[in-house]
Simulated scan of single mutants.
Amino acid sequence: MASSSPALCFLISIALLLAFTSASDPTQLQDFCVAVPDSANPVFVNGKFCKNPATVVADDFVFHGLNVPGNTTNKEGSAVTPVFVSQLPGLNTLGVAMARIDFAPHGLNPPHVHPRASEALLVLEGNLYVGFVTSNPDNKLFAKTLCPGDVFVFPQGLIHFQLNVGSTNAVAIATLGSQNPGVITVANAVFGSQPPINPDVLVKAFQVDKSVISYLQAQF
């Protein structure tokens, strides 16, 4: 039988390489990896060091206080109480997190993005107008007014928001598909970056007068 051509050998090699690189485990390879902040520990997973399993205790998997309302006396009229890996070390490598969101009457959880997680929001009290916007070029808005017991899903990486449309307090619980989902609040990032973005960039991006950009940057 004739030997394979160099081109065929190259294609086979690429196929084998792709098969190898895609054959990774999508979840953790141990029961848990309780996060610790010091670098003296030898194992580093998902941005955190693992506590020695022999010293892990039940308290490493417990968070207290999600029943306590957040302080909504701020400009947005909302407060987020996160239960991410920084607050609950036992979440490390498990791919889940939670948050309690409190809203004063007409309070807003402003447009933001979770770069590493999708989110499911459960309304416990009040009525929330929620929504997300798809990516370019459509930028389509999917929005709904939710009542207690309703659940709404926000896809990973898309801008979304929640607004209390009632005259009483509202409460929601968010579950997220990452132990460290990250949060990028759009207005803070655009108008409150440090150092500030050159106003000429924002003038052209938003098609407004420079005085408007200066005013917005001053708010942050």
Rank of each mutant, 00 (worst) to 15 (best):
M98K: 12
P105R: 04
G77Q: 02
N109G: 00
N127Y: 11
C147S: 15
V171M: 11
E119Y: 01
L146W: 08
T93P: 09
P155F: 06
M98T: 11
P82G: 04
S167T: 14
F161A: 01
V165Y: 01
A172D: 05
G107E: 00
A99S: 10
F161N: 00
T93R: 08
K75I: 15
P82W: 07
V130Q: 03
G107C: 02
T145C: 05
L141A: 13
P137W: 03
F161Y: 10
P137L: 05
G77A: 07
A120S: 13
L176F: 05
P82Y: 09
I173Y: 10
V113Q: 11
L122Q: 08
H106Q: 14
P89N: 08
N92R: 04
F154S: 05
T175G: 14
T81P: 08
L124M: 14
A79I: 00
Q179R: 00
I159Q: 05
F154W: 02
P115Y: 13
L88C: 06
S135A: 15
P89M: 03
V151D: 08
A79N: 12
A97I: 10
A170S: 11
E125Q: 15
L124S: 11
T73I: 10
G157C: 10
V85G: 03
F103L: 11
F103N: 07
G90R: 06
S178D: 14
L124W: 09
L176Q: 08
I159W: 05
V133P: 01
T93C: 06
N139C: 10
K140Y: 13
V130Y: 02
T73G: 13
G90H: 06
T134F: 04
G131W: 00
E125A: 12
N74K: 06
A174C: 00
I159Y: 01
P89K: 06
N136E: 14
D150E: 08
P82V: 02
P89C: 04
F103P: 01
G177S: 09
A170M: 05
I101C: 05
Q87M: 10
P105S: 08
P89R: 02
V171W: 00
K144R: 15
Q179E: 15
T93A: 09
P82A: 11
H106C: 11
Y129L: 14
F161W: 04
G166V: 02
